[in-house]
Design a protein around this nucleic acid. Structure first.
Length: 235
DNA sequence: ATCCGGACGC
DNA sequence: GCGTCTGGAT
């Protein structure tokens, strides 16, 4: 047990102390979380909200309604979320999957008899569901204890000097999971991922990071004048 | 490595 | 106008 083994947990605690709970995932039902997880792929959440609003307006926020809709209709509802043709296919494929699993009426019952990792593998078999989307569904819609990692997490970990910038999804997830408690960790993981997204948006941005009032500055070599390339910054 | 894409902040 | 947005498939 080195000091570094608990650094991700320290990061979580520091962010939570600074900002408090982020109240993720905003949705009225587990199915709405699943829909949001697919629609938010590489897309700003504000645009996803519009698309979900259109689905709700059309009373199409159910598995059966999505499956009954025509392609052009579904695409029009999803348009504000971008990639609307791609996402219409993915949402339809996901709803077909829920129907095949016999949970079209109660999507929150998906995989009740399965271990988390088995259910994860099942989700990854659905067209349009990759690792981050699968884990978002597992954690936020189905209440499974699994850490969601993303581009923000990778950038933050890299700038903190804890992982390589090109670390793969599973490796990054493994490193973080190793430092988190396994017991009653669902609320922690929900908050941690949400806090990392906030940090990535507000301070640890891709370009022009705002290190000035960053709550994690004390941990960070970047904030101490070192750039992504390991050189001292000019500013 | 490229494509998908509208909405938003700057 | 440009870069970016709670990625995944080809």
């Amino acid at each position: 047990m080195t000091a570094k083994d608990s650094s991700w947990l320290d990061l979580y605690q520091t962010l939570l102390d600074a900002w408090g709970p982020q109240h993720w995932w905003p949705a009225d039902s587990p199915f709405e979380v699943m829909v949001g997880a697919i629609l938010t792929q590489n897309t700003a959440w504000s645009n996803v909200e519009k698309a979900i609003g259109r689905l709700r307006q059309a009373q199409a926020l159910t598995v059966s309604a999505v499956l009954k809709a025509r392609d052009a209709e579904l695409e029009e509802w999803l348009r504000p979320a971008g990639y609307f043709r791609v996402k219409a296919k993915r949402l339809r494929a996901f709803c077909q999957f829920l129907e095949e699993q016999g949970v079209a009426e109660q999507p929150q019952l998906l995989g009740l008899d399965l271990e988390t990792l088995s259910l994860r593998a099942l989700l990854l078999g659905v067209h349009g569901v990759g690792e981050e989307t699968a884990d978002s569904i597992l954690l936020y819609a189905l209440g499974r204890s699994i850490m969601v990692v993303d581009a923000y997490t990778r950038r933050i970990g890299s700038r903190l000097g804890w992982v390589g910038a090109s670390i793969g999804y599973k490796d990054l997830q493994g490193v973080i999971e190793a430092s988190l408690p396994t017991k009653s960790g669902v609320p922690l993981r929900k908050e941690f991922h949400a806090l990392l997204v906030s940090l990535g948006k507000e301070h640890c941005r891709p370009r022009n990071p705002r290190c000035h009032r960053c709550p994690v500055q004390a941990f960070c070599r970047y904030g101490q004048g070192v750039s992504d390339q390991g050189r001292v910054r000019a500013d």
